[in-house]
Nucleic acid binder design. Structure first.
Lengths: 223, 223
DNA sequence: GTCTATATGACGATAGAC
DNA sequence: GTCTATCGTCATATAGAC
């Protein structure tokens, strides 16, 4: 049993070191770009020699894989407070505004992760299924929410939920892509593209929401 | 005069070599990603030694700069047939559909260039003003077209043309970003995101077009 | 188990012979 | 203009001290 606690301590210490390595790696990616990450630079900042890093990660690709999984878990956590079954009285507009804002905020505040996750800028690197799993979960959750809103009558019934979801991901990824490529230093609040979200949600809802029953706020294109 | 023609020939020969180098570089970027470009690989494919390339480009960044300018000129050329002042009877919807399709098609058919131009995946590289000029011209042209359509009465007058242009670039870059990141091997015609263009144009026009005068096809949100 | 020391080969880049 | 030789740095890998 003593050996067990010793193992635990060793294991915990190892995990702490791994987290430290990943933290430094994220900082370097944020400064020099995702492809600008180098083993030597990580070791330099940690005050160790490059070969020591191979104790924790068998290769640079394995390091990228851990970063990918960490990033996917992070964005999943950033979106978890408002996901799964959207609260009952929540309108499509409110759901899109909240989930869109949360995702876009995370993306511009974690540019290194979002580039690694959504742009694939590392030549030979493909994430492992394990690292990819949280990312898949994110997409599925979002798609399930839109489908639920459609069953609830908040979304036009003459279009596939998958199509609505696809178009929504295009809008959101367009905002992120434009903001990060053209003005990466602007904050979420003051970003010239992030501020377009409300306008885009209005446009999207106008096109895809089921028109309200109590009058004619909108009537083209449905049915 | 003889020396002049000799110089011309030398100069032409040099330009041909430069174009050859750039062609090979684009092919490598398409295979291994923009950051996967290497001087050694270019030399290998051209059957020369790496140092010989420094006769034509003083550094790898200068090579990227030439590639950036070449890409910007290429996309500008791909869009030039339908630009500047949009033809008189052309509706907003038709203009967006055509210019959007042309840009998206170029982007998915030239993924290496579009990543270099719009994603900035090379750590220390920033394009020179000369290389950047054609890209600026592209944006200005598009913005001018939207402003012209607004003056002509095809676009709502209660919003800034710059806002309309910003939202349009978000849609288009969203399509490109999603298509290249998730399914880069799909063609423009069969792409699961490129095919969303018509639907997105419809959504966009519904929100931003000035409603037709002859009836009530649409009436919400337009002053 | 974790580190230092050291080796290999590829890279971007420069100097200088031809 | 093209080459050889060379430099410093990188990712990667192995050997061996503690």
């Amino acid at each position: 049993m003593i050996s067990s606690t010793a193992q635990d301590r060793r294991h915990r210490r190892r995990q702490e070191t791994i987290e430290e390595v990943l933290d430094v790696a994220v900082a370097i990616m944020a400064e020099h770009g995702v492809a600008g990450l180098s083993i030597g630079e990580i070791a330099r900042r940690l005050g160790i020699r490059p070969p020591s890093l191979y104790v924790y990660f068998p290769s640079k690709h394995a390091l990228y894989d851990a970063l990918f999984e960490r990033g996917a878990r992070s964005v999943l956590a950033a979106l978890s407070p408002l996901q799964e079954p959207p609260p009952d009285g929540l309108s499509l507009e409110e759901y899109l505004r909240r989930s869109g804002a949360a995702f876009i905020r995370w993306s511009v505040e974690n540019p290194a992760y979002s580039q690694l996750l959504f742009w694939r800028p590392v030549p030979g690197f493909t994430p492992s299924p394990a690292a990819y799993a949280p990312a898949t979960q994110l997409v599925e959750r979002n798609q399930a929410c839109i489908a639920a809103l459609q069953r609830r009558g908040a979304v036009r019934s003459d279009v596939d939920a998958a199509t609505v979801h696809r178009d929504w991901t295009i809008l959101v990824s367009g905002v992120v892509s434009q903001q990060l490529a053209n003005a990466p230093s602007e904050s979420f609040e003051e970003g010239r593209f992030t501020r377009a979200l409300d306008s885009l949600v209005a446009m999207f809802v106008r096109h895809y929401a089921r028109p309200a029953a109590h009058g004619g706020t909108d009537r083209a294109h449905d049915r």
